[in-house]
Amino acid sequence: MDLSIAQNWFFIIIALAMVMASLIVVTTRNVMHAALMLVGALAGSAALFVLLGAEFVAGVIVLVYIGAIIVLFLFGVMITRVEIGRSQSLDHERKWPAAVIAIGTFAVLAGSSVAFFGDEEIEGVAAVRTSDIGTAIFERFVVPFEVVSFVLLAALIGGIVLARRDDPES
């Protein structure tokens, strides 16, 4: 990787921030902080997508993930009153085996990727335009697009049924 290119410095800063944020997500004793740090990690991925020329996906990440999903999480945290302050009971005792598994997974995945791709550059081709994505959704990917709308509808209806408080008489 050529450090003289501004893009690479940009990548390194964002990547480090993302890794730090995700480490906090999985280690913090405060549920609220975990959700907010996930916002940080996802915002970083949105920035990387801009770097990769995928502005539409970056926009969707900001609007859907950060705007909607995380807000849903915060609602969930607040409604269920998971201890919002510092809490001792959030983690298992078995931290070391989990850390070994995680580090092993990272070593295998990262090592094999680096060994195969080496320093192959991402080509400087023109980025996919948003209109291409629109075309792809309604031509090549129209079936999964329709199917995913059923997934959302089912989640909506079923979620309401499970989460609503039943009237005592019915």
């Binding site: 990917f141 999964p144 199917v147 997934v151 089912a154 989640a155 079923g158 979620g159």
Partner: peptide, 18 residues
């Protein structure tokens, strides 16, 4: 892979709720 994954999610999503 896309259709397979989305189809699988449509199988499992409602099943979680049921």
């Amino acid at each position: 892979l896309v259709t397979l994954f989305v189809g699988l999610e449509l199988v499992s999503g409602p099943a979680f709720l049921l």
